[in-house]
Nucleic acid binder design. Structure first.
Lengths: 141, 141
DNA sequence: TCTATAATCGAAAACGATTTTCAACTAAAC
DNA sequence: GTTTAGTTGAAAATCGTTTTCGATTATAGA
């Protein structure tokens, strides 16, 4: 989804469109990698130098509310954000460059609810992430 | 695994056995729920009232090193700890009471590496957790 | 059993990430 | 334009976690 659409969504929720927000939105919408608030700050400042880190936090919070970005959990920390996929998809992340790819896993739903039944749980949600090394990073070694 | 065995493992690594450590180890070894450092502190102080929070952090760090506990990531935070399962198992967690159960998922490995192949990633590791409501919590509603 | 010593302790200070406060600014409605 | 409420960045506050430090103590060796 293009950053234009993200801006429309923000606007339709009553949020104002400012240069600071545009910089954060465009940074997140185009990044193929999971970014921490500090990463976003660094990148978005190239487009809008006056940008404050606080505004990055505040904008990411709103984007998460609107399901435009999602938080990414990793061994090193759980504060990175990535553009959200359409529907319920799962993540495959490069441990080296943090590049992320989504994949479908619909076939797993039955297995998951079977696991729940066996332990007398009603399964509500699941979390699946694969970690690896992408082609580009593999080559660099 | 009993807390006695945990203490033996700690000892065999050259760590000393103190009352503070015993309190933390016994708390973690017997808890069916994922506990934050603050939770552990509260519970273990019943056994050893002089226990400091710092010691809880330091002991959890050692237990994680020895793979006796593992960190549990959840929506609300990523700082809870749980007794580790033998081998590579996955977690099913009750969103209400945090009770956790391990399950096997060996059958998934092929699927995961296929996903990797499709996207030209070498898959190194995966993370799978199910969230739901356990039988006891379901009854309470 | 006694002694020596390095590991461990808890309290306090330091730290880093995140959130809140606040006065100045500005997008958007009229 | 003017008005107004949402938004801003800087600074201060907060929270969880880590480090520092002098006192304590588990353990090994005498």
């Amino acid at each position: 989804m293009s950053s234009e659409n993200w801006l429309v969504k923000l606007r339709s929720q009553g949020y104002r469109l400012t240069d600071a927000r545009r910089a954060v939105v465009e940074t997140m919408a185009q990044s193929p990698r999971a970014l921490t608030p500090a990463d976003v700050h660094d990148l978005a400042k190239e487009q809008y130098p006056a940008l404050g880190l606080v505004t990055v936090y505040r904008t990411l919070e709103k984007l998460e509310e609107l399901h435009l970005v999602q938080r990414v959990h990793q061994e090193q920390g759980c504060n990175a954000y990535l553009a959200h996929a359409d529907g319920h998809q799962h993540l495959l992340i490069c441990e080296s460059c943090k590049k992320a790819v989504y994949f479908e896993g619909d076939d797993l739903d039955d297995f998951f609810s079977d696991v729940g039944k066996k332990h007398n749980f009603t399964v509500k949600d699941h979390w699946l992430q694969l970690f690896g090394i992408c082609e580009d990073c593999e080559k660099e070694k």
